[in-house]
Write a protein that binds this DNA or RNA. Sequence first.
DNA 1: CTGATAAAATTAACAGTGTTAAGTTAAGTT
DNA 2: AACTTAACTTAACACTGTTAATTTTATCAG
Lengths: 201, 201
Amino acid sequence: MGVKERRTREKEQLRRQILSAARELFVNEGYESVSMRKIANKIEYSPTTIYLYFEDKADLLDSVCKETLLDLLNTLERLKEDTGDPVEALRESGRAYVEFGLKYPQDYKLTFVIRPQFQKGLGLQQGSVGERVFNYLRAMVSECIRQKAFRQVDVETTGQALWSAVHGVTLLLIDFSDFPWTEKDKLIDMVIDTMIDGLTA
Amino acid sequence: MGVKERRTREKEQLRRQILSAARELFVNEGYESVSMRKIANKIEYSPTTIYLYFEDKADLLDSVCKETLLDLLNTLERLKEDTGDPVEALRESGRAYVEFGLKYPQDYKLTFVIRPQFQKGLGLQQGSVGERVFNYLRAMVSECIRQKAFRQVDVETTGQALWSAVHGVTLLLIDFSDFPWTEKDKLIDMVIDTMIDGLTA
DNA sequence: CTGATAAAATTAACAGTGTTAAGTTAAGTT
DNA sequence: AACTTAACTTAACACTGTTAATTTTATCAG
């Protein structure tokens, strides 16, 4: 039965086509400014066809964000070099997180700001990619504490505090691009280093 | 000439009426979901009347946010107690900032997330209320350094880093309300205290 | 090759959007 | 009572997300 498999493949292909058209438009014009008709035009299908592949516009956003989170997770996990210094590893991960956000500012905002607004109630489910990203952070913090590089702080709260800090600087740099920031990397380092200094015994 | 003054007063009154209707709707239904027609209905005027008082929907948002910033500035300045301990004062201001954001989450998002998206290029002009809020923070940091409570760090970068941290935790708590956060105040304190510890000599 | 069956994609419609241009109503002045 | 100006409204434009009904396309059985 090669036919059914080909059909499945073709469906998957169109799904991906829709997804990549949606991402490009969302990123360039903003989620709200993109209409289903625009996406449909881009892929040269009728608007309603999209509804055969995605529940609605929010579901489309959801799928785009899931890809972004996977991309972020890959970026972070690629860093794992086992240098033996868990604090330095955490510092590098923090930098990589912010840089990821600044490299794909609109994707970052879609994932961490826009999406939560459009699907209240189910932001970070068990087993989701988002949870896996946070687990990565949790593991790094945990290692810092285990090796006594950090003072005896609560892993959970510490991880959340670190996330807060990097999330904050990422968003400010994206949203207030005309603010008279000091040199960008200096600020990023300041945020991360200050947090780590505060956690170091 | 009492007539002209009455007219001016009446105009100002309607302006405020529009503004407060817009704020209520923006906060309860989200900026994008609110139409000019909805606002007009609420105040029992035709939609186009609003355009006699505000340039467009973004200008309306702008004016709402300006009020929010004034409110935030007042909240912060009310704290000034001159306890003599600049670090403690900064800590309290940080807490007050986050609490303000959590007390009016939608107003906070409108001001610090939505607005920047809808008027790119002019986010924090000279003399704006936003600038005054940051000046307040700058002064507090400056005092900490002057009194040698902080090590010799750059005022500008430090202020921006602190803003990043409080902004981050505020937004995460607002946007990911279903995330398994540790106790809310514990997290807020952790973020602020860790930053301050990192800045303390 | 024909007809049936199921899947895929489309058309038309609904009630809504921000905004503009033109027109109307009301108030104050002479 | 006629004129002027400010305040407001009506009608229109080209859009929006989404649904129901319909048509097209592709596959299979005979």
